[in-house]
């Protein structure tokens, strides 16, 4: 597909893959040779076991490696632990594949670094100007306020296992919440991995073994699929919250039966997408993953050549 004979985040098994980050719609199993940051490789091994790949080649941020006649570098994308943009240099031209990224601060991963380039391939998960994420600390303050208004109820927050969960925990700790946080079983392994990477998450307890009395007034994190389903019946009259950029739109929150929508996203919002197009200075932009048409239109208004790059098989995980 590209010079160098490798693919970035391929959807089907390939000979050589470069993986931007560990979410399952980007890091798929079964590639023969995988190159990614050490943290992304660790996440893939944790989630996929032997399926993580035949040979795993770690590449730290900023290190350059030649693959065929292409030079490859990985640069922080600010999305989740280990997430990277892929910088490709070939015949004097530079292309950057952003992967998923955000510009907002996040204590759990290295911040996005804009790289000046000729072609920029950007995600557009929140590629509509109604998606503008408020500061995350304000959303966490609303959660903590709700816990004072309903002190006897369990607050259960839906959060993806990789990235969102750990970010919400660090935001809570930064806001001074120092009680134990209870976790759905599916969230524990990656929290352990984040701790191994030196990120302090405070005291975490499994929600699965806690009894109903212990969960009165407690804070529980669980995968989004579990918060309003049978798993949640063990909780004490739960306040159902969900941490996601989609919560910006009321109807999306109502559809999911969410009582406390928290607009906390690991993706760039509209303003960050537009700022990034400006920052990387690329005369040509390819838009993928999301609502391409609006961002292509906006790029046109900024004098940038842009086109939509449709990809199959990408969902909303980690939004």
């Amino acid at each position: 597909m590209e010079p160098g004979g490798f693919h970035v985040d391929p959807v089907a098994p390939v000979e050589r893959a470069v993986i931007t980050h560990g979410h399952s719609d980007h890091a798929r199993p079964g590639h023969r040779h995988v190159m990614a940051t050490p943290a992304t490789l660790a996440i893939m091994r944790r989630r996929l076991g032997d399926g993580a790949g035949g040979t795993l080649q770690p590449l730290g941020y900023g290190e350059a490696v030649r693959v065929g006649d292409v030079t490859v570098r990985l640069v922080p994308a600010g999305h989740v632990l280990g997430s990277a943009q892929v910088v490709l240099e070939h015949a004097g031209a530079r292309a950057v594949v952003s992967g998923d990224y955000k510009r907002a601060p996040d204590a759990t991963c290295a911040p996005f670094e804009p790289v000046f380039c000729d072609v920029f391939v950007t995600e557009a998960t929140f590629g509509l100007p109604v998606f503008r994420h408020p500061p995350a600390h304000g959303e966490v303050a609303r959660l903590l306020h709700s816990m004072t208004v309903f002190p006897e109820r369990t607050h259960v927050v839906g959060a993806y296992a990789l990235g969102k969960c750990q970010r919400v925990i660090t935001l809570l700790r930064a806001a001074g919440y120092d009680r134990p946080i209870h976790l759905h079983g599916a969230l524990m392994p990656l929290c352990d991995l984040y701790r191994d990477a030196g990120i302090d998450l405070g005291e975490l307890r499994p929600a699965t073994v806690a009894d109903a009395a212990e969960l009165r007034g407690a804070l529980v994190l669980a995968p989004p699929g579990a918060i309003a389903d049978r798993w949640a019946r063990r909780l004490s009259d739960p306040v159902v919250a969900l941490a996601s950029g989609w919560m910006r739109v009321r109807q999306r929150a109502r559809q999911r039966g969410v009582e406390l929508p928290l607009v906390i996203s690991d993706h760039a919002d509209w303003d960050e997408l537009v700022d990034t197009l400006r920052d990387v200075g690329a005369p040509e932009v390819w838009v993928t993953h999301g609502r391409e048409e609006a961002l292509v239109h906006q790029a046109g208004r900024m004098g940038i050549r842009a086109r939509a790059l449709s990809l199959l098989g990408f969902g909303e995980e980690g939004a």
Binding site: L128, V249, Q251, E293, A294, H297
Partner: peptide, 14 residues
């Protein structure tokens, strides 16, 4: 911008 508004209104619905 009128086009961005139209796409957005269509998505949000209110």
């Amino acid at each position: 911008d009128a086009e961005l508004f139209a796409w957005s209104y269509d998505y949000v619905g209110d």
